[in-house]
């Protein structure tokens, strides 16, 4: 697993376009569960709409599942296909003095934050993330654009280690 490779902030050559470290695989599962939770209200709404239309006196008759079917199909695609693709699209790279975060399926974004410009650091865990043992690392900068750059799907322990490393770097610099 990629996660077993601890980030070594020293000695790594500074290469912005080098290989990316992947996130923890549990990130995919967390995304799936989140998508399922999001899809449930839509499915319920579709079923309700279907019953209402079946009872309503309409001049034409809809085949059963005409509304709920497509909604279910979309939900299945979103739950099975999209999270793994999203997982594959994400990645990060940590080097001696900067963090690079890559994300986005269609709209790709590739951000680099130098540790020397980090204002403060957050490590967040929602209930889902806690269940899967992952965390989100967020770096805040003073710039208007990219005022906060977040990196989700890190193993809990790794996120804390990274925070400590970045913090140590900041302290060393500002001494």
């Amino acid at each position: 697993m990629d996660q077993s490779v601890a980030p070594s902030p020293s000695g790594l050559p500074v290469d912005d376009d080098g290989a990316l470290t992947r996130l923890h695989p549990n990130y995919t599962h967390a995304l799936r569960v989140k998508t399922v939770l999001m899809a449930i209200p839509f499915l319920v709404a579709a079923l309700v709409a279907e019953t209402i239309i079946r009872d309503a006196p309409l001049p034409f008759s809809l085949p059963p599942g005409a509304i709920a079917g497509p909604v279910l199909l979309i939900a299945i695609v979103l739950v099975i296909r999209v999270p793994s693709r999203r997982y594959n699209a994400r990645g990060y790279q940590i080097s001696a003095d900067r963090l690079r975060v890559v994300r986005g399926l269609l709209w790709r974004s590739d951000t680099v934050v130098p540790f020397g410009r980090v204002q403060h650091i957050d490590v967040d865990q929602g209930p889902l993330e806690r269940f899967f043992g992952i965390a989100t690392l967020t770096l805040h900068t003073a710039g208007n654009h990219n005022a906060s750059v977040s990196l989700p799907g890190l193993e809990e322990e790794l996120a804390r280690t990274m925070r400590e490393e970045i913090r140590a770097h900041i302290r060393r610099e500002s001494m």
């Binding site: 709209w107 790709r108 974004s109 951000t111 934050v113 410009r117 710039g143 654009h145 990219n146």
Partner: peptide, 30 residues
């Protein structure tokens, strides 16, 4: 500057260009 981002939409990715966003305190720089 505070950060550098290279952003690409689907078309930009296919055609090989990008938007560069620079993190500037108090303003935008793209």
């Amino acid at each position: 500057l505070h950060s550098v981002e290279i952003a690409q939409g689907p078309l930009a990715r296919w055609r090989g260009y990008a938007t560069v966003h620079l993190g500037l305190a108090g303003g935008e720089f793209a």
